[in-house]
Design a binder for these strands. Structure first.
Length: 201
DNA sequence: CATAGGATCGCCT
DNA sequence: GGCGATCCTATGT
C-alpha cells in the first residue's frame, strides 16, 4: 500500500520518524523500480528546532518546500555533492520533516548496482543519507515531488513510500542524537535519530 | 556581487 | 581520525 496523505499529515514528526522505519522507499525511473526498506531516520521539528532549516520560521527559496503539506519530498544539496532526501510531514505551513538516513536495498538490485559502478552493492550500501539518494537515483531537482501517488505511466521519475506490512516494534528501535548538527546548541542533544536494531543472524 | 559554510562520503594515513 | 571534494544557498555589502 502506498502511504496516503493522511499518514503524513499527522502532527507528531518524532512519531512519524519512528513509524517510517520498516516502510519501503521506492523510485521508478523510466519504468524501472528500485526500493529499499527504511532502517534509519531523523526527525526535524520545524520552527522550534535549531537543527532544522526552517528554524525560527525561516522561509527561503530552498526551504519553502518544507512548508508544503505532508507527503511532499524535500531534497537539497549538501556539501556540493550529496542530495539528501526528506519527507515533509504535518499540515501546510508547518515545516516538519524526516530525513531518511538509511535503507536496506530490496528491489531493482541490478539498477542500483548500475548507479554505483565503482562499488559492490551489499546490504549495507544504503547506509548514509547521501547513499540512499545515490542508490535510488534521487536528485535535489526532485524537491517538491508528491509522494502520495504511484503513477501508472512509465515515463519520467517517481518517488513514493509503501507499507508492506513490516511491523517495527518499539523494542526494536534504537534512538540517539542526530548526526552532524553540533551547531544546534541544546537541540543537538535531542534523541531524534532512530534506527532498527540490527537483527542477529 | 562576494563569500563562507554545509543534516556527507570515501580515501588517506 | 583527518581531510578534500564540490557547488548551492544564504547572507552581507
Amino acid at each position: 500500500m502506498v502511504l496516503p496523505r493522511s499518514f503524513y499529515e499527522r502532527p507528531d514528526v518524532v512519531l512519524l520518524a519512528k513509524e517510517l522505519l520498516g516502510k519501503y522507499l521506492c523510485t521508478r525511473q523510466d519504468g524501472i523500480l528500485t526500493a529499499g526498506m527504511i532502517c534509519e531516520t531523523e526527525a526535524y521539528e520545524g520552527v522550534t528546532d535549531r537543527a532544522s532549516h526552517a528554524f525560527g520560521g525561516r522561509r527561503t527559496e530552498r526551504t519553502r518546500i518544507m512548508y508544503a503539506r505532508g507527503g511532499t519530498a524535500y531534497v537539497y544539496l549538501c556539501y556540493g555533492v550529496h542530495s539528501l532526501f526528506n519527507v515533509v510531514t504535518s499540515r501546510e505551513d508547518i515545516p516538519h520533516a524526516v530525513l531518511i538516513r538509511g535503507i536496506i536495498p530490496s528491489d531493482g538490485m541490478e539498477k542500483m548496482q548500475e548507479r554505483i559502478p565503482d562499488k559492490k552493492l551489499t546490504g549495507r550500501t544504503g547506509i548514509g543519507p547521501g547513499n540512499v539518494s545515490k542508490l535510488l537515483g534521487i536528485h535535489y531537482s526532485q524537491s517538491g515531488a508528491d509522494l502520495t501517488n504511484k503513477p501508472k505511466d512509465k515515463k519520467g521519475f517517481h518517488i513514493w513510500i509503501e507499507d508492506r506490512g513490516v511491523g517495527t516494534e518499539t523494542s526494536m528501535i534504537l534512538s540517539g542524537p542526530r548526526i552532524g548538527v553540533g551547531y544546534a546548541g541544546p537541540d543537538a542533544l535531542l534523541p531524534y535519530r532512530f534506527r532498527i536494531k540490527h537483527q542477529p543472524g
